[in-house]
Design a protein around this nucleic acid. Structure first.
Lengths: 327, 327
DNA sequence: TTGAAAGCGCTAACAG
DNA sequence: CTGTTAGCGCTTTCAA
């Protein structure tokens, strides 16, 4: 009956039809788990969104990157006959057993020497990453996020918009995005003879970091003399940091964009609605998600990934926070 | 070894430890599929977002309800030791087999006599719905969305904001939300001696319906005399319809909110950023998602759902489109 | 307390 | 071309 229902070899069309009819009559549905056990593949792609393991919330208020990625990946998987499962770190001992049941995984923004990648590789479960493990850049197939390019683009934009002294605010997750952005920023400072002003705050903190950033860069009180000259632009890698900084600056009487330009890396919804709206990148999570699923499905089917994995370019979205009026 | 690793009965602590050590040494990981086959449960909750099957896109631009729901449900599932799988209609013949592998399902906004529910019930797979099947309101456990209450709330708000003649624009999916809203609206019209102005457009169409709605209610040309008096308020059940209607009205020289009030049912992001911003409901998808997972997990573990399923109230978010200035 | 074996529902290889 | 059977990796019952 297996042969008949799956129209494999060696069953006459008449018997096949007879089998199918009976199957229909008794309401037969194949058991996915049993088939999965036999084939050792169940038709499922696992999506591990790494930053969520530190954020401790699947829904950091106002961050839509992950949700857009998830939605796109889910649809892409279904289109390819797969199902998408959402999991956090499956290498944690208390993670559900089913978290390891997928045929292939997509891991976003892995950490330095990420244990998730180590585990998957150890178990010989195929995976692709979205952005690479910064400690093992070429060890595994990865869609590079190219933080380097983005930092260059944004710094160029800020300078063109009138900035002289650009400060950088990164997150603290040890991922390629934070690390490479910082390195590129330092390189740019060195090359252009600027002295770096570099801060890091946990991604979790969200827009609450605003006051701390402004305190650190402009002094706790407006009258306090500063050792280094205050920046005239701040580039925050996370959109929520950028939102908080913008708000804190304005509360302090620092006008955005007149006195201070503010830009974000990965845009959050809030950056489109705040006053002023804040310049960010659109990292095109939908496109990335679909491409990653493509690759994961190939890996699940033990097909080779031909060619380098190209991720779509980040699109800079210039908004009010870096647009000084022309007159 | 199974007994030892799962610390079931009848293994001395010494042997248990010895077994565990060897397991660690050889890097043993239990196979989720095999265990699932044996236990006939794998620790997975399936989420079926019904409207997506008609929308034909997991990401209708600007609609964030589903993504917020998904994120919250996913996190809630992980917290309870389950994993969340996203699927569209698993009753479709071409859906992946794994789409039926979950222990329990959450089905959002089922259609009238929804085949998904029929199938799950037939397979004896437990499920909860978010909003009920309008043809079988009490057949299955459901978190009622209470469209009736929402229509009452919104109509009361519009009247208070100055509306006399309120038109209703629904979607076309045969779900409880559309059906009950329409019924409640008609009841309200009858009770208050108003003549109903009722339109329906596919959810898919999004904000593109704006011109059609305005044409239908105000006449294709501004000078054309209308048989029935034009409305002074339009309540669109979907946020994107509301956005389109607002835009089309303004393009036609009809001022919002001065000449026309516009409100949406389920809010989309665009309603918070448009000019004017549009009054909508916040349906609290995060809270609903977490509650639904709670219920689904109970069902998966064959525990009874005690008491009626209460969903959080929809919160009306009054914005510019229904706020006439006071002077 | 331990070891052996049956069986979860399916697939694929094997004789008939 | 058909019917029988072993076995995927696990759990659990049964005998030792």
């Amino acid at each position: 009956m297996s042969l008949a229902l799956n129209s494999k070899g060696g069953v006459s069309e008449t018997t096949a039809e007879r089998v199918r009819e009976i199957a229909r009559d008794i309401g037969y549905t194949p058991n996915a788990l049993a088939r999965g056990l036999q084939r050792s593949s169940i038709g499922m792609i696992g999506l591990v969104i790494r930053p969520l393991d530190t954020l401790e919330s699947f829904l950091p208020a106002g961050v839509d990157f992950f949700l857009r990625l998830t939605g796109a990946a889910s649809l892409a998987a279904l289109e390819r006959g797969y199902t998408l499962m959402l999991v956090t770190d499956p290498s944690k001992p208390d993670s559900p057993l089913s978290a390891l049941a997928a045929d292939a995984y997509i891991v976003t923004e892995p950490h330095e020497n990420d244990p998730v990648l180590t585990m998957l590789a150890g178990e010989r479960i195929p995976f692709v990453t979205i952005d690479h493990d910064p400690a093992r850049p070429d060890a595994f197939p990865a869609f590079r996020a190219r933080a380097t390019n983005q930092v260059q683009t944004m710094l160029a934009h800020l300078v063109e918009a009138g900035a002289q002294r650009v400060a950088l605010v990164t997150g603290t997750d040890p991922n390629a995005w934070n690390i490479e952005s910082r390195d590129e920023y330092l390189k740019w400072c060195a090359a252009s003879g600027r002295s770096p002003q570099l801060l890091s705050y946990p991604e979790t903190a969200g827009s609450a970091v605003g006051d701390d950033v402004i305190d650190a860069l402009f002094g706790a009180s407006p009258t306090l003399p500063l050792s280094s000259p205050a920046p005239d632009a701040i580039f925050c890698l996370t959109g929520r940091h950028a939102a908080g900084v913008t708000e804190a600056a304005i509360a302090r009487g620092i006008r955005v964009p007149e006195d201070l330009l503010v830009a974000g890396g990965s845009g959050a919804i809030i950056n489109q609605t705040s006053k002023p709206t804040v310049t960010t990148f659109d990292l095109q999570p939908e496109a990335v998600g679909a491409l990653a699923v493509d690759a994961a499905v190939k890996l699940a089917e033990r097909k080779p990934l031909e060619g380098p994995l190209e991720s779509p370019p980040a699109l800079i979205q210039v908004r009010e926070s870096t647009t000084r009026s022309q007159h």
